[in-house]
Amino acid sequence: MKKTTLIIKEIPKDEAVFFIRKYHYSKIMPKLCKYFLGVFSKEKLLGVVELGWGTQPLQTIRKLFPDHNLKTKDYLEIGKMCFLPEMNQNNYFGSRTLSTLIKWLRDYTDCLFLYTLADGIEGKCGYVYQASNFFYCGYFKTSVYRDSWTHEKIHPRSARILLEENARFENVSKKHWLTQEFCEYKGIEKINGRMFRFLYPLTKEAQKLLEAYPYQRQNYPKDKDLRFEKRVGYRKYEKIPHPTFDRQTFFYNTQNVHS
Rank of each mutant, 00 (worst) to 15 (best):
F65M: 05
F65G: 01
F65Y: 12
P66L: 11
P66C: 12
P66S: 08
P66F: 13
D67G: 07
D67M: 09
D67L: 13
H68N: 15
H68Y: 15
H68L: 15
H68A: 15
N69H: 12
N69T: 10
L70A: 13
K71L: 11
T72F: 04
T72L: 13
T72E: 15
K73Y: 15
K73Q: 15
K73L: 13
K73N: 14
D74K: 09
D74F: 10
D74S: 10
D74R: 12
D74W: 12
Y75M: 07
Y75P: 01
Y75C: 03
Y75D: 01
Y75A: 04
L76N: 05
L76T: 07
L76W: 08
L76M: 13
L76S: 04
L76K: 07
L76C: 06
E77F: 03
E77G: 04
I78H: 00
I78A: 02
I78N: 00
G79Q: 09
G79M: 08
G79D: 09
G79W: 01
K80S: 04
K80M: 06
K80F: 05
K80P: 00
K80D: 04
K80W: 02
M81R: 05
M81D: 02
M81Q: 10
M81A: 11
C82Y: 04
C82Q: 02
C82T: 15
C82F: 03
C82R: 00
F83W: 12
L84G: 05
L84E: 13
L84Y: 03
L84W: 06
L84K: 12
L84A: 09
P85H: 07
P85F: 06
P85R: 05
E86F: 13
M87E: 15
M87T: 03
M87P: 01
N88S: 02
N88F: 02
N88R: 11
N88T: 03
N88P: 01
Q89A: 08
Q89I: 00
Q89E: 10
Q89K: 13
Q89F: 03
Q89M: 00
N90K: 00
N90M: 02
N90P: 01
N90E: 12
N90G: 00
N90F: 01
N91K: 14
N91Q: 14
N91A: 14
Y92W: 10
Y92D: 07
F93W: 03
F93N: 04
F93M: 06
G94I: 01
G94W: 00
G94E: 03
G94M: 02
G94R: 00
S95M: 12
S95I: 09
R96Q: 10
R96I: 02
T97R: 04
T97P: 02
T97K: 01
L98C: 06
L98F: 14
L98T: 11
L98V: 11
L98P: 07
S99V: 08
S99C: 08
S99H: 08
T100V: 09
T100D: 05
T100F: 00
L101A: 10
L101G: 08
L101I: 10
L101W: 08
L101T: 11
I102Y: 03
I102S: 03
I102Q: 11
I102R: 12
I102D: 03
I102N: 00
I102L: 05
K103D: 12
K103T: 15
K103Q: 13
W104S: 03
L105T: 08
L105G: 08
L105N: 09
L105V: 10
L105C: 14
R106W: 06
R106G: 14
R106S: 11
R106Q: 15
R106P: 06
D107I: 13
D107A: 14
